[in-house]
Design a protein around this nucleic acid. Structure first.
Lengths: 151, 151
DNA sequence: TTAAGTGCAAATCATTTGCATGGAT
DNA sequence: ATCCATGCAAATGATTTGCACTTAA
C-alpha cells in the first residue's frame, strides 16, 4: 500500500500495461514482509480480488522480477519465493538439515559485492541471497548416524 | 577413477552398502570436471553400465550429497547440478540475462565464511556457490527495452 | 482499434514414491 | 538370511504454454 505507487510507475515507464492482476500481485508482495511463493501470492490476492489466474501470477512475477521490482530466491523449499526489492537488503542462512532460515544483514556482503564488480564487472544481485550450510544447532549433532533427514 | 577409492571408503564407513549403481554414479561424477545434472549422470553411466535406473541415480545423489562427497548447486538451469566435492573450491557467477556461468576463486569468500561462522555459528557450504547477477556484457546494454529475454 | 494480457486446461519436466524383487553384507 | 537398495511405473507438484477471448491504452 506504500511504495505501491512508485512501483506502478516503473511498470508503466517500462512500457507495460497496468492490469488489475498485475497491480494486485504487486500489492500483495509489497504488503508482506516475508517471502511468498507463487501459490501463496495467488491465495492472498484472491481473498480480495477473486479474478486472478495462476498463469497471470507467474507471468506477473516474471515481469516484476525482470524489472527489478521483486526478487526471487530459492530457499530450498522446492519452489521459488518472492519478495519486494527493498532497501536495505537482507540475506538468508538456510540450514540444510533443519531447514531453518535466519536473516542476516546486507553489510556482510558489501566487500564481496564491490570486489565482484571491480574484478569481474559482475553486478551481483546480492539481496535476498540464500546461503546454504549447517546452523549452529545442527553442527553440534552432526555426522553421528547415517540417518537421512533430521526433521 | 582417482579419488574413487577413498570415496568408496566413506560410503562404507557411514554404514551404507556399496552397490554397482552407487559406485558408477560416483565414478562418473569423479571423472567429470564440470557440473552434471541427474539426467546427464544417468546417460554417462549407461554408456558403460546399462543397468541403472533413474530412481537409483536420484537416491544415490541424495546419499552422496548428504555424506558431503558431492555438492549440489542450482545454477538456474531449471534443474539441480552436481559436482564432486573437491578442494580447493570454486564458485559461479551466473548471469540472469545471458545465462553465462563464470568460475571464480574460493578465496573471495573466505572472509565472509569466517564471519558467518564466528558471528552466527553457521557453517556455510561455500563451495560451488552460485551468485546471480548481471555480467559485464549484459550490464552495458541493460534497461533499454521491455523485451523479456535477451538470448 | 489493436497489440498486449488473461483464463483455462493441457502439457512439461524434474524429482519422488509405493511396492515387489533382488543383492550386498 | 536379512534388510537395504533397486527397478519400474505411476504420482507429484511447480511452472509453462497454446490458443481463443478480453481489455488497457
Amino acid at each position: 500500500m506504500t511504495q505501491h505507487l512508485e512501483l506502478v510507475q516503473s511498470l508503466r515507464q517500462a512500457g507495460h500495461r497496468l492490469t488489475p492482476q498485475r497491480e494486485s500481485v504487486l500489492a500483495v508482495i509489497a504488503d508482506s514482509h516475508e517471502h511468498l511463493s507463487a501459490e501463496e501470492i495467488l491465495a492472498r490476492v484472491r481473498k480480495r480480488y477473486p479474478y486472478l489466474n495462476k498463469s497471470a501470477v507467474y507471468r506477473s512475477l516474471e515481469l516484476l522480477t525482470e524489472l527489478g521490482l521483486v526478487t526471487l530466491t530459492d530457499l530450498g523449499h522446492g519452489r521459488v519465493e518472492y519478495e519486494l526489492h527493498r532497501h536495505p537488503h537482507h540475506h538468508h542462512l538456510v540450514c540444510r538439515k533443519c531447514k531453518s532460515v535466519q536473516q542476516i544483514d546486507h553489510r556482510l556482503f558489501q566487500n564481496l559485492q564491490k570486489k565482484l564488480e571491480s574484478d569481474f564487472g559482475f553486478r551481483a544481485d546480492l539481496d535476498h541471497f540464500a546461503i546454504f550450510g549447517t546452523c549452529r544447532k545442527c553442527s553440534t549433532r552432526t555426522a553421528k548416524n547415517p540417518k537421512r533427514h533430521s526433521h
